[in-house]
């Protein structure tokens, strides 16, 4: 069973439907710690503000169960679900994230149109992920982005893809069976579904 963690933010139904279209048989949208514990795989989606997301996760008492299980089973983070993995964000003063990885979350320069909204290319930076996370996905493929903040990991070895928007920023990270991306595979048509299929097949 794949558990999509529901903390009241973002379009979870789309993620569930896309995973099903990518071949997942049993997908549950849930905020139950019990189901998260029992799930074979975890998905942390979400759009919006990190502060609000942390508040909701805390309210639902999901912070600990996520932290404890994040490396125990295949994990997929999408958009805000990527940003939440980091230790802090400059969004609205200083906001603390889950702190799975050291590093910050930063807003795009005021000189750019923010949010970055639309289709942009990814540059695959890591050979291993080319045959794992990005199997059957060519370098420079387009994915759909919709965000104002990007992550800056301290540990550069987790960076597996980058994208250009005013500057080069990190658009996907991976470590063991954890994969998280800034773009939205569930909204990225054919190639998005292929990426989800790679996750479903782990």
């Amino acid at each position: 069973m794949i558990a999509i963690i529901d903390y009241g933010m973002g379009n979870l139904r789309s993620v569930a439907k896309a995973l099903e279209a990518a071949g997942a048989k049993n997908v549950k949208v849930t905020s139950s710690a019990g189901l998260i514990l029992r799930a074979d795989k975890l998905v942390l989606p979400g759009v919006g503000a990190m502060q609000e997301a942390m508040r909701e996760l805390r309210k639902l008492r999901l912070l600990e169960v996520i932290k404890k299980n994040i490396f125990r089973k295949p994990f997929l983070g999408i958009c805000l679900g990527l940003q939440l993995l980091f230790s802090e964000s400059q969004e609205g003063g200083k906001v603390r994230g889950l702190g799975i990885f050291k590093g910050g979350v930063k807003r795009f320069s005021r000189k750019l149109k923010v949010p970055q909204m639309g289709w942009n290319q990814i540059r695959i930076k890591n050979q291993e992920s080319r045959i794992k996370n990005f199997k059957n996905i060519p370098d420079n493929s387009y994915f759909y982005f919709c965000h104002s903040y990007y992550v800056i990991p301290e540990d550069k070895s987790i960076i597996i893809a980058t994208t250009d928007y005013g500057r080069e920023f990190v658009s996907a990270i991976a470590k063991d069976n954890l994969f998280a991306c800034q773009f939205h595979p569930e909204k990225s048509q054919r190639l998005g579904l292929r990426l989800l299929e790679n996750f479903v097949k782990i």
Binding site: N11, S14, E186, L193
Partner: peptide, 25 residues
């Protein structure tokens, strides 16, 4: 599986929530 914007007759936060929950991005 692509971005979808929905408008027309949206009056308040509950309309927005219903549309987002239904699958609008």
């Amino acid at each position: 599986f692509m971005p979808l914007t929905v408008g027309g007759g949206v009056r308040d936060l509950s309309d927005i929530r219903s549309l987002l929950n239904a699958g609008a991005d």
